[in-house]
């Protein structure tokens, strides 16, 4: 993220707190001495519709609008909205996304079968498109910090180290914009989000993660793969189920590999779902700070 100016796109679903989050970030920019402009689309917010907010800061900002491929970061309070906003990211931009999923009313094409049209994104596709994805189960992190509804502050917390705003500016902005009754919960959620650690983005072109900086805490889990038992790309259950995109295939398709080993949260999903007994998850020492909670596989 450039130090002197930047563009952040916040997206989500009505009622999640996109507009408030955007106001907090804008206020933090202002308190840090930047010019800032912000614009939002919230016409459908009362109907569970899409809400998005553009935010640009710098020495002098003329327009709040972020064009396609211009956002330094996308903060998505809902999984699918995050996926949908990927075209807004500049190459090398950061996607901060909550694992929360809210199927839109239009996805209930089949009322008996439930949400049938909520698009499924192959996580490995996403990983290839956006190297720096910081996905967190924000609602669980917020719940652990005191109030699940403060999940938007968790995501702001994840965003905060990327922006050149001092901690006091963030805190002042939260205090000034969040209703008093929810203030402490949001402060705690923000701190919890800020404390989350994500693996370094893979170096461009390699598709493999960079070596971890020594200062980072050790990853929570690791996977052992029995190569001879894995049935490879025709199965791919674990690759698609892993919420952290840890697993993938080399070009020769078999067996599965840990392509982002540092991201494993030891959620066990891959082990439980592998029909071939080919994966064993080992839990390492849990680092300080809230751990990411496993997502469901829907």
């Amino acid at each position: 993220m450039p130090a002197e100016s930047g563009s952040v796109l916040l997206v989500g679903v009505g009622g999640q707190g996109v507009v408030l989050s955007s106001a907090v970030a804008a206020d933090a920019a202002r308190r840090s001495g930047f010019d800032v402009k912000q614009s939002e689309v919230h016409g459908m917010s009362q109907r569970g519709g899409v809400v998005s907010s553009h935010l640009r800061y710098g020495p002098l900002v003329h327009s709040p609008l972020i064009g396609a491929g211009e956002a330094d970061a996308v903060v998505a309070l809902e999984w699918n909205e995050g996926v949908r906003a990927i075209p807004a990211l500049r190459p090398g931009g950061t996607l901060i996304v909550s694992l929360d999923r809210i199927p839109p009313p239009s996805a209930f094409v089949d009322r008996h079968g439930g949400a049938v049209a909520y698009p499924a994104v192959a996580p490995d596709t996403l990983r290839r498109t956006v190297p720096d994805v910081r996905a967190a189960d924000a609602t669980s992190v917020a719940a652990a910090a005191g109030n699940a509804r403060a999940m938007n502050s968790v995501l702001l917390g994840i965003l905060s180290p990327l922006l050149p705003f001092p901690a006091e500016a963030w805190d002042g902005a939260i205090a000034a914009n969040v209703p008093r009754a929810a203030l402490e919960a949001n402060r705690a959620a923000f701190a919890a989000g800020r404390a989350l650690r994500f693996p370094a983005a893979p170096a461009p072109g390699t598709g493999r993660p960079r070596r971890r900086a020594p200062a980072e805490p050790p990853s929570v889990g690791s996977v052992d793969i029995v190569d001879a038992w894995c049935k490879g790309e025709d199965c791919a259950i674990c690759v698609r189920a892993c919420p952290e995109y840890v697993l993938g295939f080399e070009p020769d398709a078999r067996p599965v590999r840990a392509v982002r080993p540092d991201a494993c949260t030891a959620c066990m999903l891959c082990e439980i779902l592998c029909p071939d007994f080919a994966i064993t998850v080992r839990r390492a020492a849990v680092p300080a700070g809230p751990s990411l909670v496993a997502a469901e596989t829907t």
Binding site: F108, R111, H112, G113, G114, A115, C235, V239, A241, T298
Partner: peptide
Amino acid sequence: GRAPEMLQQQRRRFDEVDETLAAKRFV
């Protein structure tokens, strides 16, 4: 689709969303 898609499809057949809708008599 293959296994991941089929697993996903299965979930949709007993999504909690569906139960909620049924309980609210939308269905």
